[in-house]
Design a protein around this nucleic acid. Structure first.
Lengths: 340, 340
DNA sequence: CTGAAAGCGCTTACAG
DNA sequence: CTGAAAGCGCTTACAG
């Protein structure tokens, strides 16, 4: 039935069945617009269909030096932010006929570099690196990499085109929203200053407060690695006397932990304290109080990353940095300051 | 520097630099245990390092008819259940030196089949299909596929090895837990009966209730597609008079929606009504009340799927079905029946 | 222990 | 519009 090792028909089988040369078969099968006599074209197509021909992408890639595939590196997937990002990447990739190779780094630089090496060996056309909050720049420069790459997410500039969300502005606007509600005493909950996204959100808060020219209080709790830390710290603060009436959390996780702590300490949210997060986790809207949050355009960042890669592959120039905006989603965990 | 098209050195360049044949270079570079003179080996290794040689996986795959890659299809990623599953797959793949090609189907059969075709063209060694609750069996039989494939998640048997969680038993045990708390009036919240996982969880509930030989009440609300539906239905039920004291939700999403509805309707959880979910979403534990739930071993299912694939590739026999168990995680949304 | 050569399944100038 | 041939970068019997 076929001379191939795998048992599946090769283009030679198709050519033979159609009574044409391999070259011609290749042209009708792979180049839709190549001029081929109508009759010839149909015989090839029929033969291909009859044999159930599946072109070998390995051979094709080898011959063309192009694989229509990209490598994607992401820290984790259980974080909804990255899950949404990869969904955006997948959607754009499918639209462009690109296959995605995915590797998780777990935030580990060594694993990230290993993955890049894997991708390079597999001859991907480009690489998309979704930066973890604490990731350092990739080990290879754009030149050393040799193929187009774009960074998605806040990170130190390393010469790669980047897709980021303007976190500073997001923090600025979240604070403006809370200020508009009458709040004057703020508390920002965050993890580490080395994590760009979170530091910038906090800076944005301060930017806004200072811009008002009025009196305010602003405190920052750092080093909170997640819900549990956030819970403990706020629980303690409640005992020691919490002065802030508005809590801005660097992520929804921190916000959820804070709300739990406040609730357990007998403080009502949003009646006594307003809480606002960042990210808009899917579940955040189905808890009570539903979480007011700044929605990060993660899926859109992913889509744009693929678009940039495609542009680069097409030889087009791309902007060194693209900034998207987060959107405030008002829900039940914030309300006008009642005065205490 | 090299005769290659891409500018990167090929094995020919390495061989030339080391003063050996391509065959020998290939042997030391690709087959660690092939007998080669120590001096020769070192010269090749040195040359490879000096040139920064990266073997072309396409050429290797073509020559070996093996690519050390697998194709993975998953409905979505923003559902934490699948996110965890893919993380498990990635971890096992990395441990086995396997690269993952990932494609999301969005629950669409056509996209799933297209993805399988893509994977086949790219000569993956095997395929992992993560079944969506409403997925039908793959369009190709194991024989038609031609390469090893395993199904992860409940689905109609199609002749592929399967990794599933015993949902019936999970429903059974969740109910036993609630029964032990003194509850006798149950309500099961679910979507569609065609969705194996959810139907079986409900059947497990009934199994347990009947097994007690005692009197009970059991109602089922079907057709709830997510939090919003769940919220509305429970909100209505509260107005019409909700008799159940224990709500078993087919997913954490449904549970969260139910809790929100109960809260908004002035019913306290767990004081008035106990609510239990399935899945253990990351965020479920940081809301108040923290959600009691049956934890699905999604990551483990993923890991096992890869393990089965590896066994099949090694020519070993694998069991047609592997059932894992869900674990009850007791938290704050359930409590002993107070008697009303 | 090593090499020459064929082959994996495509694509693409080059000729006609 | 079509074909013969070289080439993509590896691996692997087959000889020695």
């Amino acid at each position: 039935m076929s001379g191939s090792r795998t048992g599946s028909p090769s283009i030679r089988d198709v050519a033979r069945a159609a009574g044409v040369s391999v070259a011609t078969a290749s042209r009708v099968l792979a180049k839709a617009d190549y001029p081929v006599a109508t009759g010839t074209r149909e015989r090839v197509l029929d033969a291909s269909r009859a044999l159930g021909f599946v072109p070998n992408a390995l051979a094709r890639g080898l011959a063309r030096a192009k694989t229509d595939s990209i490598g994607v590196i992401v820290p984790v997937l259980i974080n909804p932010y990255y899950a949404a990002m990869v969904q955006g990447i997948d959607a754009a990739a499918q639209e462009n006929g690109i296959t995605m190779l995915l590797s998780l780094s777990g935030g580990d630089e060594a694993r990230r570099e290993t993955a890049i090496g894997e991708f390079l060996a597999r001859q991907v056309d480009g690489v998309l690196i979704c930066a973890g909050a604490d990731d350092h720049v990739p080990g290879r420069s754009p030149a050393a990499l040799g193929i187009p790459a774009v960074l998605i997410g806040q990170q130190a500039n390393a010469g790669f085109p980047m897709i980021v969300t303007d976190n500073r502005r997001a923090g600025f606007e979240a604070t403006a929203y809370l200020w508009g509600l009458g709040h004057r005493r703020f508390l920002y909950l965050t993890s580490h200053d080395a994590w760009h996204d979170f530091r910038e959100r906090g800076e944005g808060m301060l930017d806004y407060l200072r811009s008002t020219g009025e009196t305010f209080e602003a405190e920052v709790f750092k080093g909170l690695s997640g819900e549990a830390d956030s819970y403990r710290r706020i629980r303690d603060a409640c005992e020691e006397g919490l002065s802030a009436t508005a809590l801005l959390a660097s992520t929804d996780r921190h916000a959820l932990g804070a709300i739990a702590a406040l609730t357990d300490a007998g403080r009502l949210v949003p009646d006594d304290v307003s809480v606002m997060g960042f990210d808009d986790y899917v579940t955040s809207r189905f808890v009570r109080p539903a979480l007011t949050t700044m929605q990060m355009p993660a899926a859109e960042m992913g889509r744009l990353g693929v678009a940039r890669l495609c542009d680069m592959l097409a030889g087009k120039a791309v902007p060194p940095e693209t900034r998207l905006l987060a959107a405030a989603i008002e829900r039940g965990s914030t309300r006008a300051y009642g005065g205490q």
